[in-house]
Structures are given as structure tokens and as C-alpha cells.
Computed example of a mutant assay.
Amino acid sequence: MIRLTDFLPVPEPSSTKLKFHMRAGNGGGEAWDLLVDDDPEWLNMSRWRAVNANNNMGDARYLLAWAQYYPYGPNYFIFGGFFRVTPVMPAVIDGLGYDLKLQNLHAEYIKRLIIKLDKPLGRQVYLRRYETVQEQLAPEVYELAPDTKLGTFPGYQNTRLRHHELQRIVANDEPSWKDALSSVKGVYVITDLSDGRLYVGSASGEANGLWQRWSGYAQLSNLTGGNRELESIRRELGDAHIVGNFQYSILEIFDPKTKAETILARESFWKQALHTRRPHGLNAN
């Protein structure tokens, strides 16, 4: 077993706290989802200064932030960064009461290092002092991923991938993703997040279903899959626009034995339902 404090030494142990986040308040979403998406709310969760002093930084000058890595279970947490803590003045209570500055120390482990606690935590936010966390929660290094963790396949209805995430999944042949996407055909939607326009496509004849179709999009040499409208965007705005703005989700899945004409009919339905044909969307026909 590798102890957390042995793996992540800090310059001022007595002035450092650890904050374990499970979810944002008021239905704001899971902490891991916010961290992996670089959502500003992730940082705000650590900046919050509560009325209850037990939930605050106190005299801490540094913070190790963690998000519950729910794909593994309730007692697994993934590293979100080492921060310098400065209280906002005048003091803000029940609001964003701290300024946080990300430090270079241990930055290479962000979204990669997963620790396991001896038992699940019972609160939405949980703080511990660095000096005592080892005896209180027994955190141990569980995994150091070679690249940013994306989690196991979340289910067809919960798939929402940015292009850089799709690239990593395909490049690493992520097993749970490859198994799930290879086992179905389907209708999918690509969203251009810069303007909200949609493109509906399908994997109706590919031997390896959605995995084969999306693997093509993941290649920088085939970002558009040959689609006329997407290719027009690539020529006008460049590859960087697609990589930075395209998001991939699944609308409907089918057994691999389903006839292609059945899937193509459903693709046409979704184009009509979502108004993805020109001029409203990115489908040419």
C-alpha cells in the first residue's frame, strides 16, 4: 500500500487541508463531472466559505482538492489540484470566500491520481488536515492513470464526449467504451457547441457499430467523416474548430442484426425531429 501523504508531499503540512467533494449543492451535478469538464463550478466548490466553520479552510494556506470518482465507488476520489488559499477580504460568509491559485506542485497528477479511503464519507463536502488525514481516513494510492481519466462507459443514454475525449478513448482502445460501442449500431448526434447546430448521423452498416464510425471521427485525418456540411466547416474554420467545439452523443441504439434500412429510417426521423437539415442544422439531406 502506498500512503497518500507519502506520494503527495506538501511544503507546509501543518498549513494544508484536503477537501473531498462529492457533488455540488442545489442539484449542481457530480463533482467529478464538473472537474473533468473544467467547469468553473468545480473551482467554486472549493472556494465556498460556509456558515459552519468546520467546513472552511480556517488557517490553511494550501488545499489539496478531490472529487469523488463515482465510476469506482463512493470511497474513491480523484485528484483535482494543489492550490494556494487566500481568504477574500472583507470576509464573505455563505459565498465564494476564498481565492484559489493552482500550483505547479503535483499538477501532473490532476485527473489521473485516484485514491481509496477506508470507508465512504457521509457528507457532501468533507475536510481533513493533511497532518491527520492518514490516521483518520487511511487514504491509499489506488491508481495512477497514464492519461486523464474519463471513467468507465457511463451508458448509452449518458454518453456526451468532446472531441479530445473521443480521441483519447479511441487511441487507448478504452475497453469498456470499445466493448459497448462495438456491440451496437445506432443513430448519433454531433453538436457544434459554438453555435448549437446539430448533425445527425448513423452507424448502420459498420461491422463494429458505433465504435467503428466514431473511430473515424477521432482521426485528425478524417474529422468530418466525409460529410459535406462538416467538411465545409473544416475548410472555413479549420481542424481546431472541430476539435475544440464538437460534442458526440447517442440518440438511439440497435441490435447489430438490425437491417440498415430500419436504422436509416430512424436517422431520417431524428433529422426531422431535431430540425438538423439546412438551414437550421448541419445535415445536407
Results as ranks from 00 to 15, higher is better:
106 H>I: 10
245 N>C: 02
166 L>R: 02
204 S>A: 15
282 L>G: 00
282 L>P: 02
93 I>H: 06
205 G>E: 10
60 A>L: 08
69 Y>P: 05
88 V>M: 09
99 D>V: 07
155 G>W: 12
73 G>A: 13
8 L>Y: 00
187 V>W: 00
128 R>K: 15
218 A>H: 10
260 A>I: 10
110 I>N: 05
49 R>D: 12
267 E>T: 04
230 L>Y: 03
82 F>Y: 07
104 N>K: 11
21 H>L: 14
153 F>D: 08
168 R>P: 04
127 L>S: 09
164 H>Q: 15
255 D>S: 13
150 L>S: 01
124 Q>K: 07
122 G>M: 14
6 D>V: 03
276 T>C: 11
186 G>E: 08
78 I>T: 09
29 G>D: 12
249 S>L: 09
121 L>S: 08
252 E>K: 07
43 L>K: 07
169 I>Y: 00
117 L>A: 11
127 L>H: 11
111 K>V: 00
220 L>W: 13
192 D>F: 14
113 L>P: 03
83 F>P: 00
171 A>E: 09
248 Y>M: 03
199 Y>P: 04
211 W>L: 08
65 A>W: 01
203 A>G: 12
10 V>R: 01
210 L>N: 02
140 E>Y: 07
5 T>Y: 05
215 S>Q: 06
40 P>L: 11
77 F>A: 02
187 V>C: 03
203 A>E: 10
1 M>F: 09
32 W>M: 13
241 H>T: 12
123 R>P: 00
122 G>P: 13
25 G>N: 06
253 I>A: 02
246 F>Q: 00
243 V>Q: 12
262 T>E: 14
13 P>H: 05
22 M>E: 13
262 T>A: 14
77 F>D: 03
94 D>S: 15
10 V>L: 04
231 E>S: 15
281 G>E: 01
141 V>A: 03
224 T>F: 09
75 N>V: 08
28 G>W: 05
173 D>H: 09
71 P>C: 04
61 R>D: 12
233 I>P: 01
217 Y>T: 02
53 A>P: 01
135 E>M: 07
7 F>E: 02
277 R>E: 13
31 A>M: 07
112 R>I: 06
141 V>Y: 01
283 N>H: 06
20 F>A: 01
195 D>M: 10
251 L>M: 14
4 L>Y: 05
259 K>V: 04
145 A>H: 13
134 Q>P: 01
195 D>A: 13
62 Y>M: 03
67 A>N: 02
256 P>C: 08
44 N>Y: 14
181 L>G: 00
175 P>M: 05
127 L>E: 04
223 L>P: 06
178 K>G: 02
101 K>D: 13
124 Q>S: 13
86 T>Q: 10
93 I>F: 04
40 P>F: 11
56 N>Y: 08
181 L>T: 03
108 E>Q: 13
208 N>L: 15
59 D>F: 10
114 I>W: 00
147 D>M: 08
159 T>H: 06
107 A>Y: 03
226 G>K: 01
15 S>E: 15
93 I>N: 05
254 F>W: 03
